[in-house]
Design a protein around this nucleic acid. Structure first.
Length: 207
DNA sequence: TCGGAGATGGTC
DNA sequence: ACCATCTCCGAA
């Protein structure tokens, strides 16, 4: 396994969004050691993207981390009760990031079952297993990610992304992004990427 | 199986 | 007053 380095993140956001597919997101706290395979991402490109929190170079306390150079986690709260994990990309002041929308549970699934459903893994139905991490809010809940990890470096050992030496082949599909209907022309940009036919991709598909 | 609405609180 | 979400519940 090879941890993704600074150079991986400080590239074009659409490239990073695509290349994050099939990589592995690792969470290593005292309490939790979990891994998911990334199966769905979305690019957010502030300067030209009305769906992005940093559109028009808007700088606020919340979005400040998005203006750092690539390789940091931007985690924000949404709808009062959920969190979304983003990976900051490109160079300092770019204001760009990739939203991690869904993952396939690989390791520490027992813990994910507790975090999501307060159940043991062997008590989950097939449907619940598929529902562990197939959406940005669900993914963060399963992995125990919240405001505490906002701004964390992805080059450390608590939260990072790595590639396996041998990667299983897959096809990349793309579509419009989810849940940004307010974003005028940006709603039509096909900046959502996912692994074709992977069962853990979030179900909703706004074509 | 589906669509609508409520939950819930930080941000602007 | 929103909002890069999720779940429940009622209708069909």
């Amino acid at each position: 396994m090879k941890k993704l380095n600074k150079a991986f993140y400080t590239r074009d956001t659409l490239t990073v969004a695509k290349e994050l597919l099939g990589k592995y997101l690792a969470v290593n706290n005292d309490e939790e050691k979990m891994i998911v395979k990334i199966v769905e991402t979305e690019a957010y490109i502030g300067p030209i993207d009305k769906a992005c929190h940093t559109y028009n170079n808007r700088r606020t306390k919340r979005t400040e981390i998005m203006y750092s150079s690539g390789g940091y986690a931007y985690i924000y709260q949404i709808y009062g009760m959920y969190f979304c994990l983003n990976v900051v990309t490109e160079n300092e002041d770019a204001g760009t990031a990739v939203l991690i929308r869904a993952g396939e549970p690989i390791k520490g699934v027992e813990r994910m079952a507790v975090n999501r459903f307060s159940k043991k893994l062997n008590e989950l139905s097939k449907k619940e297993i598929l529902n562990l991490t197939n959406g940005p809010g669900k993914l963060c809940r399963a992995l125990g990610l919240d405001k505490r990890q906002n701004g964390s470096s992805l080059l450390g050992k608590e939260l990072f992304i790595f590639a396996e030496d041998v990667e299983e082949p897959f096809q990349i599909a793309l579509s419009k992004r989810i849940g940004i209907d307010y974003a005028e022309e940006a709603r039509d940009y096909e900046w959502r990427f996912y692994i074709k036919d992977n069962p853990y991709v979030s179900v909703k598909t706004n074509k």
